[in-house]
Amino acid sequence: MTGRDDQGASYASPPCMAAEIAPDYFDPLAVDPAQARDVARWRTAQRRDRLAARPSADSRRQIEATLATHLDALMASRFGDISGRVISGYWPIRSEPDLRPWMARLVAAGAIVALPVVAQREAPLVFRPWTPGCPMRRGHWNILEPDTDRTVTPAICLAPLVGWDGQGYRLGYGGGYFDRSLAALRPAPRAIGVGYQDAQMPTIYPQPHDVRLDAIVTEDGLQWQTAG
């Protein structure tokens, strides 16, 4: 998932118009190149709009506390004892919910918390252990990351959502790193999308490379989960 526009290309019917006819029409296993370009172009616009509509810093404080409560409930119901489990969080950027206090509580409860790191462009992420106050360094896109070369394999991955739909799919920033990583990790981790309720979309028009999440949590609670 690149999220890049193809300048000068001819586009088929825009997916947003197709959704007005049949919101679930999109077949991710039958994508032609023109349709794929349409989806990439449409996602770029959707991504811009949803980033601009994110709540203010004052509003986020309450949202973050509520999100943490819902995540605690999901962890307890689906995973039980988290002691010793490797759980990947994220370092907040671009007005994402700041879950670092919640991550610190995971560490105190005995979990191994990690942060995703771009070690190589257009390759799967690596995951480096994090604890409150650990040494940090500037990494890809100038995002802070743990100052260590040690890596761990997460059993549970949190993914910040730019957008999300009711079928368990995530709109991210367009680089494809998260989907690429989920496809490469063995054993496959449980993937939990975390984001704002207002970022819900009728569909993201999933492509063959889009990986369905195991759960989606917003400030309004659990919005999606797989049966397993």
Rank of each mutant, 00 (worst) to 15 (best):
R138L: 12
A57Q: 13
Y25I: 02
H70Y: 08
R60D: 11
G84H: 01
A22E: 15
R47W: 05
L67A: 11
Q7M: 09
V113A: 12
P124H: 02
P23D: 09
M201L: 15
P160T: 03
D6N: 13
P28N: 05
R61W: 08
A12Y: 04
G195N: 07
W102T: 03
W141I: 06
D38C: 15
S59A: 15
A68T: 03
P23K: 05
D147Q: 04
V107M: 06
A53L: 03
I93R: 10
T44S: 15
R54V: 00
A53I: 01
D38W: 02
A123S: 14
R50I: 04
R180C: 08
T226E: 13
R50V: 02
E219C: 03
P189I: 01
R100S: 11
A30M: 03
Q197C: 11
A34H: 03
R54M: 08
W91K: 06
R170A: 04
E96R: 00
A22W: 10
T226K: 14
V118H: 09
H140I: 02
R85S: 13
H209L: 01
P129Y: 09
S83V: 00
R100Y: 07
H209R: 04
W130C: 08
R4Q: 13
S10I: 06
I156G: 12
P23A: 14
E122G: 07
G228D: 14
A9D: 09
E145I: 01
R37K: 08
D149L: 04
Y196F: 15
I143K: 06
S59L: 05
Q167P: 00
Y25N: 12
G174Y: 01
I21C: 11
W42M: 10
Y173C: 05
R128K: 15
W130G: 07
A18C: 12
R100L: 15
E96W: 03
L144D: 14
A188G: 11
A114M: 06
W141T: 04
S83A: 15
R41Y: 12
L222T: 11
D5K: 12
R100C: 08
W130K: 05
A18H: 13
M103I: 01
L182P: 07
W102S: 07
V31M: 04
D98V: 03
Q200C: 14
M103E: 08
R138I: 05
V31A: 07
A114H: 08
P146C: 03
